[in-house]
Design a binder for these strands. Structure first.
Lengths: 279, 279
DNA sequence: GTCGATCGATGTCGCTCAGGTATCGCTGCA
DNA sequence: TGCAGCGATACCTGAGCGACATCGATCGAC
């Protein structure tokens, strides 16, 4: 099995159409048909059921699609990282969700900068749920994740710290003065339905609350008395005057972890992790 | 970058000798030289420093070696799993260390067997530290691991249960009658140096204790009054008459987890994991 | 210092196979 | 029934893989 064959197969499996896949791959359709046919012959397995009107994946094809995507990411990552390693000045790309982990991040970068042989750290601000992809295809070397929100599937991690969660409410709201609150009480406020964040697929879950994509939006909507949210304590420090944070007793604690791809060999990654765990 | 090029590069990087690598790959040496040269040209990176007497890896080469090995395993896994998925009867390979987790394993297999659409589960008894490799190159689909002994690097896991550790002593030993004991007391018994297990590389750590490879050997040596060991409670049930298990107060608890490769798409794996977490 | 052995690079050649164009055969729809 | 759309097949060209022969550099033996 060759990378080229895998690229071709993944393209068809995603398009379920030889012609479209060929256009996407910028080749003609016949070589594509032949390549897939040979791949099937070599594996001794039917990957696609095709009629002249429809193409569908077999069970085996679905498995190869999933494994193949992972392999293609890994190859892209290998190329990027190899080229990166050949540079004189080592560089390190750290992926973080925009707007989170402010203080921890500053402390981490400060501490790492003083390390002997410290690499230049580039920050890659990303959307939620993107970390994994960025690490797997080599666009990032390390990431800061928040459990239980982010997935650590296939990544190696070290726990940095754990914190409680707070509800963010308009200061004027009757509950804003409470010293603590329960999840059920927050979710039961009829006039303030919980804000909705995009899921892993980029689409929003069903619900009455506002759809938000970043903290600025969110805080504005809360201040306007349109929504509320439960989020980690650290994101609720230094709030605008018109917002209040109330600790939520029974919300699951949020753990910040540092994550990296499992076979990372970069000295800079090892150094950064060591610094992070000592904070 | 193609798989063939990667296979060639990994062979050279491991042998550090074009001739030997060519023999291992069962090709002549010149095509090997040319393939590597072209790979370097395409990546724009020097992977190997070569004189006519010695070949060494560059920094970038070391990175590509590590990434390349992972990719080659992933490709082997993809081929195996795709072929497996094409079989009528779904099969599932579960890797377990020989001699451990007896009762849990039996319960798990029993519970899974009653699932609708349950696959045939093949047990793959393996040496310690092998799990990861088996999962990564597709020889196994799921594994039972024991933290903190085994590494879960690059695997996804669910915790099954946690247990304390016991010291296994000859029944005749003065400490055998104790209801509990401390690590320091066990390691300080001069006539019973702690048994040594092979490390990840297959070699034994330094020390005075006996070198053991399985439980039968170990128990025999303990019964003979030559060594002792600290191990999970469950491995110390149903001991021979001439052995005694004493709970060790301050030994770290051992967690049994079920682990699988992160992008596993097999229904059977998902089912087994669900059953396992409900035990 | 010289010679021979060792090792990676290079030159040349045959052949496989990737990719292109043209075309066929099947299927669903108007 | 005719047509449009789609994948398979036939055939051709050229790139590149691999084999063999050979070169040039380096190190050790004497």
């Amino acid at each position: 099995m060759e990378i080229r064959e895998l690229r071709y197969f993944v393209a068809i499996a995603e398009e379920l159409h030889f012609g479209k896949a060929a256009r996407r791959l910028e080749i003609a359709q016949p070589p594509l048909s032949r390549t897939i046919a040979r791949l099937e012959r070599q594996l001794g397995v039917t990957l696609l059921e095709r009629t002249s009107r429809k193409v569908t994946l077999t069970e085996a094809g679905a498995v190869l699609l999933s494994e193949g995507r992972a392999i293609l990411s890994a190859v892209a990552a290998a190329e990027r990282r190899t080229q990166q390693a050949a540079q004189r000045r080592p560089r390190l790309v750290l992926a973080v969700k925009s707007g989170t982990a402010g203080e921890l991040l500053a402390k981490l970068l400060d501490a790492y900068r003083t390390e002997p042989g410290a690499a230049t750290v580039d920050l890659l601000l990303c959307e939620a749920h993107q970390h994994q992809k960025l690490l797997q295809d080599g666009q990032a070397d390390v990431a800061l994740l928040h459990l239980p929100f982010d997935s650590t599937l296939g990544l190696d991690t070290e726990t940095l710290y754990t914190e409680g969660q707070v509800a963010i409410l308009p200061s004027s709201h009757p509950l804003a003065g409470r010293s603590q609150i329960r999840v059920a009480e927050v979710t039961a406020i009829p006039e303030l339905p919980m804000a909705r964040w995009p899921g892993p697929g980029g689409s929003y879950p069903e619900g009455p609350g506002a759809e938000v994509r970043n903290l600025t939006q969110l805080f504005q909507l809360i201040a306007l008395g349109r929504t509320t949210v439960i989020m980690p304590e650290s994101a609720g420090t230094d709030l605008r005057r018109d917002l209040a944070a109330v600790p939520v007793l029974d919300a699951p604690p949020v753990t910040t972890v540092i994550a990296w791809p499992p076979h990372s060999r970069l000295r800079a990654v090892a150094d950064l992790i060591r610094v992070a765990t000592r904070l």
